[in-house]
């Protein structure tokens, strides 16, 4: 269990933990954008950078590293708010504000670093995608991998293969829900859902008439988890009511 100091405070962190995890144990806040506790760290937004010194280095030699994925080690000294850390985070947010000037999340984060307006050229016809890749990563995590980041450099974007309706997408909305700037459009209406240019049929709960999940998602989970397809035909609401009825009868509360 490595013991390190973060902003002068000592913390003993679990084996295999990252600097970010260690910081959270002692309540030191480090801003993140592309981090999600349920997914492997990615190290792409660079917002979580911290100044690091570790044993073996010259006394005054520090390195800026991303805290979300850098492993903790005994004797490390970490500074989460050194001038150059704050300056670097400011530049990153300033750049993101130029990329996504209309995204409320970025506007708020940038304002927190004293940036009301970007110093750079706003993107023409911008969308709110900050390329944190959380959507593609969660889709990979579910072993679906329907979308990915495509193109290199400034032209990089999140897209389905060949910008066509993705054959593997099951319409589960994990990507849309994990997106920090809510920039993945989808529509659920009339018992149909559409996302990424693909249309899905929704399963209806016979008891309530509610749309539950997409047929494709039900089939995907039925096949992968061995759960019978009929399980997905009823909504959670109905399932809870059934359970409640059973509970009541078991307790002879009727």
């Amino acid at each position: 269990m490595p013991t390190l100091s973060i902003d002068g405070k000592k913390v003993t962190a679990p084996e295999g933990s990252t600097i970010l995890e260690a910081a959270r144990i002692i309540g030191v806040e480090i801003p993140t954008l592309c981090h999600h506790d349920g997914l492997e760290p990615w190290g792409g937004c660079r917002l979580c950078v911290v100044d690091l010194w570790q044993p073996g280095w010259d006394e005054d030699w520090f390195k800026l590293v991303t805290s979300c994925n850098h492993p903790t080690a005994d004797g490390m000294r970490v500074f989460t708010k050194s001038p150059r850390v704050l300056e670097t985070r400011g530049v990153i947010l300033d750049l993101l504000l130029a990329r996504c000037p209309d995204a409320p999340l970025i506007q708020k984060l940038a304002a927190g670093y004293g940036i009301e307006e970007t110093s750079y050229a706003p993107r023409e016809e911008p969308d709110d995608c900050i390329l944190c890749a959380l959507c593609t990563r969660v889709c990979d995590h579910l072993d679906i991998a329907a979308i990915s980041t495509v193109n290199r450099g400034a032209g990089k974007e999140v897209a389905p293969p060949f910008h066509e309706a993705p054959p593997d997408c099951i319409g589960c909305l994990a990507c849309a829900e994990i997106c920090p700037t809510n920039c993945i459009p989808y529509e659920t209406s009339n018992f149909r859902r559409s996302i990424w240019g693909k249309d899905f049929e929704m399963l209806r709960d016979p008891a309530t008439g509610q749309a539950v999940i997409t047929k494709a998602q039900a089939e995907f989970f039925a096949e992968r988890n061995g759960v019978p397809g009929s399980y997905f035909e009823t909504s959670d609401t109905t399932k809870r009511r059934e359970m409640a009825k059973q509970f009541v009868s078991l307790q002879n509360l009727e």
Partner: peptide, 15 residues
């Protein structure tokens, strides 16, 4: 040639 994964390089070069 930038791979485009990280903000400082992708957006920094653009600006």
């Amino acid at each position: 040639e930038s791979c485009g994964k990280c903000t400082p390089c992708r957006e920094g070069l653009r600006q």
